[in-house]
Simulated assay, not measured.
Amino acid sequence: MNDFQQALEQACAAAGLDPGNARLLRMGSNAVYHLKAPVIARVSRPGSDIGLVRRSIAVARWLESEDYPAVRVIGVDQPVIANGYVVTFWESVADDGDQFASTPEIAAILAKLHRLTAPEDLRLPRLDPFANAAPRIDASTWLTADDRSFFTETLARLQDAYAELEFALPQGVIHGDASVGNVMRDRNGAPVLIDLDGFADGPREWDLVQTAMFCDSFGWHTRQEYEDFARIYGYDITTWPGYPVLREVREFLMVTWLIQKAAEDTQAAAEAAKRITALRTGASRMDWQPY
């Protein structure tokens, strides 16, 4: 039994839940387990910001009060701290497998979110796109010295470019990591927003850029799927002069996220190396694989 599983068992005991036959769904910033309740348990890595976790729970409860279609926390006292790990418990969206929403559904759910006004006591932070970039670069034992210098210089350049952007849309509540991977269909086939950790106050373009770049940078969406997204949302971010900068920022941050896994996973290391080469040379991103 690994440390994540031990923390899960202790947290389940504290919350009165059964950890038996817990199934690991994915391992990323959190270890995500499916319990048989059905409940989803998210086990954050040691050192995670407990304030951020508490805010995610508060965001979920606020969205529920607004009858907004987002993942719900279950009614136990949480988060639970177990051996330094921070554990939270959520209602399972679906029973078997992930079914992701269509791009029109993603657009509609984001448009509805962007019409909401967050209460002041939620204390959403101002979006800081680069908050995790430097720590991830500094902490990486996998990067070469030359790659580390490249990342540090690129980060400084992109921070300057981002600071110069003039956003076109009104600013307000945003999801922070809005893409097809974070809008799932529930048991009734309705789209539900998940992963509420990145909620912030910021430019709405930040929530739109990933669907656009998933089409034109990576080919993960078709052109028709993106056009449907832009039509339903009511704005095409690719027509905004700042789009190329925001796309470059997002691509860079995707790579800084992936280098965390490169030291422990050979497949992630190969993908990260490929992506770094593309950042350095300007090569096509069409062979990037989703993570």
Results as ranks from 00 to 15, higher is better:
28 G>W: 09
221 H>F: 12
183 V>R: 01
205 E>S: 02
20 G>S: 14
71 V>I: 10
225 E>S: 12
40 I>E: 00
222 T>R: 11
116 L>W: 09
288 W>C: 01
123 R>W: 10
99 Q>C: 15
290 P>I: 06
57 I>S: 10
69 P>D: 03
33 Y>A: 07
135 P>G: 09
22 A>R: 03
116 L>A: 12
260 Q>N: 11
27 M>A: 06
28 G>N: 15
204 R>K: 14
109 I>C: 10
191 P>D: 15
78 Q>L: 05
274 K>N: 12
61 R>Q: 11
165 L>N: 02
75 G>E: 12
81 I>P: 00
213 M>Q: 07
235 Y>R: 06
162 Y>D: 11
133 A>Q: 11
73 V>P: 00
259 I>L: 09
248 E>N: 10
50 I>D: 13
204 R>E: 09
107 A>R: 07
114 H>E: 12
88 T>N: 03
118 A>R: 08
140 S>N: 08
218 F>S: 02
41 A>N: 03
193 L>C: 09
285 R>G: 08
73 V>L: 13
100 F>T: 06
290 P>F: 07
251 E>Y: 11
221 H>D: 05
165 L>K: 15
64 E>N: 05
142 W>K: 06
251 E>V: 13
37 A>L: 14
255 V>K: 00
129 P>S: 06
176 G>Y: 08
50 I>Y: 02
207 D>G: 10
71 V>Y: 02
276 I>K: 09
112 K>Q: 15
169 L>Q: 07
178 A>Q: 04
100 F>D: 09
155 L>W: 02
120 E>G: 11
117 T>K: 15
71 V>L: 14
28 G>L: 14
110 L>F: 13
251 E>D: 15
233 Y>R: 05
135 P>L: 12
126 R>M: 14
23 R>T: 10
22 A>P: 00
61 R>Y: 05
46 P>T: 15
270 A>E: 09
